[in-house]
Design a protein around this nucleic acid. Structure first.
Lengths: 252, 252
DNA sequence: CGTTGGGTTGATCGACCTCAATAAAAGTGG
DNA sequence: CCACTTTTATTGAGGTCGATCAACCCAACG
């Protein structure tokens, strides 16, 4: 069985991974974009779509490819069209903390800083819209309504990270794992729709690094939830069996 | 001895705590504002200062007063002029996590949401500039350069919280406490200048809640650092004795 | 003077990490 | 296709960091 999300996980490993599509197709590709209304581009007026289209280029990353690195010059921002991206930070001693997973509709480069504040890697095969930083920055200058939307998304993100911080501190690993599964399901609902089957293409290490626990603990918690009949472990994700129980484990 | 910061801690407890200063003094008060260049107001052009002045009113909070509450309607945003404010979030079960301390120059209400995403309480006697949400929102509409600055501050904040998240997960309580002391010193440098004497007017409980540890552990770590000769415990703060050691404890 | 809230210190306990072994899955080369 | 290596996941045994429970001190205050 192939991955539940974004196609097979490693078969694209050795292929060329960057495909720039033609920059000016016959039709305005932004018009057809399935995730536009989920993303920052929703702030773009219909009359401005052509302009946006000329700014962006579609780009594809195979699984486990580097999208950009922390502290490097940020030459572009991205809008995820499909796939899963892990966002990570390195601490002084070189250890890694995953600060989040970006899903279709999510924007990479919220902070518009000269240098990237974190690293981004594709987990699965990922397609994204790429905007050169300079051009995107000019767009923001010209269009305050887009800047307002960007700010709104950024502060939502701030709220989310603050929440994540609270959760990491005060909750047990069981609560955190349960919350993680529920949160991912909620976030994916808008792309894959209502489903009990949830793709989790990231590794146990990724999940552990995100939830502030070791890989072993992450695995144990998954097994524990499965044994308790709350979830079912699939090859590349989980099925939620008993949502009520899961919610009670996450909070309560 | 009085507090190192913002005056005595509890003597103002039973006094009226809100003093609205006259709204239109003879001079433009923003011009004389000592923290203007540290804050969002730095984005305001000299020619716009009068306008800003008319928008804002100075407000004073005694120690341990509520400034605004999570989930309540956000009728105003604030710019801290002096004092220390604790920002907290409540989790589902009612426990509190402190997401940060606001210092002079810091802005409360970054997210510009209809409802407050967190609660703010003064730790010490605190003076602030108050902007009604509606008026401030209009200001942002009219002046994109202020919005840009707001967005810049918000994304810096996002980066900071992400960093805090990493630190909470991966570091020992000793590292966290050492980092806390160093960070507070760095942040206060721009207001109180270069000094080894660092005011920490918040309680051990506040510090613990911020650093994700219990009050007892927070106290123990402070004592440990003091016994090791790295810091000196003062009545309302600490003195940094051995900065090099402290830095090595924070990282390494 | 008693009360109250903050701070310190000690003893005990448990959640989670560390270390270790094994299993399962996926990529590699013939 | 099959052997081989590498990576990922699972499970177990034991150790430890920090939480919990508890006692006590001290300063502020009515």
């Amino acid at each position: 069985m192939h991955g539940l999300f974004g196609g097979p996980k490693r078969q694209v490993f050795n292929k060329a991974y960057v495909h720039l599509l033609p920059e000016k197709p016959a039709t305005i590709k932004c018009e057809a974009c399935r995730i536009r209304n989920l993303s920052l581009c929703d702030a773009i007026l219909p009359s401005e779509l052509q302009e946006l289209d000329e700014l962006s280029s579609e780009i594809e990353f195979g699984a486990n490819k580097n999208i950009f690195d922390q502290d490097e010059l940020a030459d572009a921002v991205f809008n995820i069209v499909s796939g899963v991206v892990r966002l990570s930070k390195l601490s002084a001693d070189g250890r890694r903390q995953i600060v989040g997973f970006a899903l279709p509709g999510d924007f990479l480069g919220l902070s518009m800083t000269k240098h990237n504040v974190l690293s981004a890697e594709s987990v699965t095969l990922t397609r994204a819209c790429r905007f050169p930083s300079v051009a995107f920055s000019e767009l923001l200058q010209k269009k305050p309504h887009v800047l307002r939307r960007l700010h709104s998304i950024t502060s939502d993100q701030l709220t989310l990270v603050q929440y994540q911080m609270v959760a990491l501190n005060r909750n047990t690993v069981e609560q955190r794992m349960a919350t993680f599964i529920l949160t991912m399901r909620d976030r994916l609902r808008r792309t894959i729709g209502e489903s009990n089957e949830l793709p989790l293409p990231m590794t146990r290490r990724d999940i552990g690094d995100f939830l502030g626990m070791t890989i072993e603990t992450a695995s144990r918690e998954m097994s524990k939830l499965a044994k308790a009949g709350v979830i079912l472990l699939k090859s590349n994700g989980v099925s939620i069996i008993d949502e009520g129980r899961l919610k009670r484990l996450a909070f309560g």
